[in-house]
Amino acid sequence: MSLLEVRNLRKAYGALKVTDDLDLTVEEGEIHAIIGPNGAGKSTLIAQLSGESLSDGGSVRFADAEMMGMAMHRRVRAGISRSFQITSILPGFTALENVATAVQARTGSSFRFFSPVDQENRLNDQALEALDRVGIADRAFFRAGSLSHGEKRQLELAIALATRPRLLLLDEPLAGTSGQEAERLVEVMHSLRGQVTLVLIEHDMAAVFSLADRVSVLVYGQIIATGPPDIIRADPKVRQAYLGEESAGAGDVAD
């Protein structure tokens, strides 16, 4: 049984079929990259998998349980966590508080009114660990809103990690990071191999082909190919649809 099985997933915005009868299987432990041109529907797919937006139909099975219709916060508890393409953090909180809040969500009740949360060392320690892992432990006590763009991307990953997911959906984690920050993030993702199943949306092809066990190509809401990186790289259909081989004009993909 695969960890994630998506079948016949459909979503449309008006006449635009953003997710068009999409099938996708993600195996436990793999790093599964999803590539595709802008507007292909990658973020919308992540939004549906994470429960942020509703699908029009289809099924999403995760660890043998149907996720369809389940609210985002429940899916997080079930083990699906995500990062956002457009950084989504708690800007008024410190970096540490951002991550500690994520730890808090999975450890004990939050209907506790009297003891100060900033003195809960269990939360702070785990939060600091996550910050350290993504390389911004030195920013722990800075307001998250005041971090640089790259640092915010790192924080975004730390928050997602702190929820201890089984399946982590990363939406363009490297977008807008500097070379050094990107390197660090790729390193972190490498280190996650075997611990967390990753679905990675990324435009940085070097990163994708170095990280991914399998790659799926999403075009116009459909997965047109799935396979190991080398096969995908060589697939003429993929080259035409995505990797920018304009020359392939004739009808070899007209199916």
């Binding site: 985002m72 916060h73 956002f84 989504s88 708690l90 800007p91 909180f93």
Partner: peptide
């Protein structure tokens, strides 16, 4: 407070 700051983020880490 976190919900005031960013409700979507709070949902995405598991809070309702």
């Amino acid at each position: 407070t976190g919900t005031r700051e960013n409700p979507v983020r709070m949902r995405a880490i598991g809070f309702s």
